[in-house]
């Protein structure tokens, strides 16, 4: 028996919007720790890892570990029927092939339940080793989204370089080139507007902008984004989900032949 009650139901809608461009079908894993997911895009270039910790739910009952295969577009279709202020409860019985999403309006005058068929998904779980990153950049998530969007109108790939001067995003295309440098800036009114660069050593890596633009669909989940870079490793783009967990995207770099 599984029953997860999330008062801030809109958060689940945002989580789905943050993943469904990248991944079609995925297994949601439910355990005492929380509600989690790990999935790669179809070309195995990017990986998304989601964790919503059990403590973040108003009610969390998961009698035994359960893996539920869902089509993210279908799940999103159902969640879009929930009001933004609705409380969402996810329910599943042991051994059934469906999951129920229950939506309750804040004053309890409307209660809806949507039952969705589950799928058998053959997914591979990957071990992500802890790594020391050469550079970690924290910046406003809206600024990162703007940079990725702007650069993708010029080129297909971005070189992200971190030096003691700051973090530089560069691209080149048929019509020309573009460079955007963000310097460390801690002297802001609000901490979420700061750009903070922790650099052990300079690093420069090339990535496909198409994937980074997909990652920025998570912008509504967090005011800030953390970008962790090391040569020879996928970049980690992390959006913290307040009081609940995170959504992390890993993107394999482009490698010079």
């Amino acid at each position: 028996m599984l029953e997860l009650r999330l008062v801030q139901g809109s958060l689940l809608k945002k989580v789905l919007d943050a993943m469904r461009e990248l991944v079609n079908d995925a297994n949601f894993d439910c355990s005492a720790t929380g509600f989690s997911l790990q999935a790669m895009d179809s070309s195995h270039v990017a990986l998304v890892a989601l964790l919503l910790r059990s403590e973040g739910f108003e009610h969390y009952r998961c009698d035994r570990n359960l893996s539920m295969g869902m089509n993210l577009n279908n799940m999103s279709k159902m969640l879009r029927c929930a009001g933004n202020d609705d409380i969402i409860t996810i329910k599943a019985d042991d051994g059934t092939d469906s999951v129920t999403f229950m939506f309750e309006s804040p004053n309890q005058d409307k209660i809806a339940d949507f039952e969705m068929k589950l799928m058998d998904i053959d997914s591979e779980h990957l071990g992500i080793p802890d790594a020391e990153y050469q550079a970690i950049v924290r910046m406003p998530s809206s600024e990162f989204a703007r940079i990725c969007k702007d650069l993708s109108s010029i080129g297909d790939t971005v070189v992200i370089s971190v030096t003691k001067e700051g973090v530089k995003f560069s691209t080149a295309g048929d019509i020309g080139t573009a460079n955007i440098v963000c310097r460390q800036n801690k002297t802001v009114d609000k901490p979420e507007e700061a750009t903070i660069i922790e650099m052990q050593e300079p690093v420069s890596l090339t990535f496909a902008l198409r994937y980074l633009n997909s990652f920025t669909k998570a912008t509504p989940l967090s005011d800030t984004v953390t970008i962790s870079l090391s040569s020879e490793l996928p970049v980690v783009v992390e959006y913290k989900i307040a009081e609940m967990g995170y959504i992390r995207y890993y993107l394999a770099p482009k490698i010079e032949e």
Partner: peptide
């Protein structure tokens, strides 16, 4: 031209 890397060459299946 740079070649696109693959996640499976960095992270192993468990």
């Amino acid at each position: 031209d740079a070649k696109q890397g693959n996640i499976l060459s960095f992270f192993k299946k468990i």
